[in-house]
């Protein structure tokens, strides 16, 4: 016990002589912030799904043209020609949440991406840039994989205006 007493006394005195109270606050503060950041970094990365490549494909082509790579499975009018864009609906229309989903190969990197063809709904059909490529289209009895379904059933109005083509992920290839 004496040994312990001595040890603590000695260390306490050393601390008292060698450090200021503010100095201690500073050091403990730095240690807490630093200590928190170091183990968190890899954990946060793991939580984000480190195995997944970020979905930012390079782009080539003209989104007003039916040949544009994302339109491989489209059946409808291209929102890009209707006052919206390949990712957004024209003003005054509403994007259907319920949608049909396909994959298209991007010529830039040769990889397949998952494309969500959300319809824009609420005003009469746009009427320009009709595009019908239908890759991966299935008969109506497989409704979730058919682009003949009016996908505006997911919005307030079921009147179809035009189609977007939004990249939502990478296709998984076994």
């Amino acid at each position: 016990m004496k040994l312990l007493d001595k040890l603590f006394e000695k260390s306490a005195r050393r601390v008292a002589q060698n450090s200021s109270r503010r100095g201690m606050l500073k050091a403990v503060g730095a240690a807490m912030v630093g200590g928190a950041a170091i183990p968190l970094l890899p954990v946060a990365r793991a939580a984000d799904g480190a195995s997944e490549a970020p979905v930012r494909p390079g782009e080539v082509g003209d989104p007003t043209s039916c040949d544009y790579w994302r339109y491989c499975a489209v059946d409808g009018f291209l929102c890009e020609c209707c006052g919206g864009s390949v990712n957004t609906c024209p003003p005054g229309t509403e994007m259907s949440t319920i949608t049909w989903i396909g994959t298209c190969r991007n010529p830039v990197d040769g990889r397949s991406y998952v494309i969500s063809y959300n319809d824009c709904c609420g005003t009469t059909q746009c009427g320009t840039c009709l595009c019908q490529r239908d890759e991966g289209d299935r008969p109506l009895y497989r409704a979730d994989k058919s682009n003949d379904v009016n996908w505006c059933l997911g919005s307030k109005s079921s009147i179809y205006h035009c189609s977007t083509a939004i990249v939502v992920g990478m296709a998984f290839e076994e």
Binding site: S51, D144, G169, E174
Partner: peptide, 14 residues
């Protein structure tokens, strides 16, 4: 996770 997410996107997410 990449395969499971892809299957969710293709078959459920719509």
């Amino acid at each position: 996770p990449a395969r499971a997410k892809f299957n969710y996107q293709m078959l459920c997410q719509g």
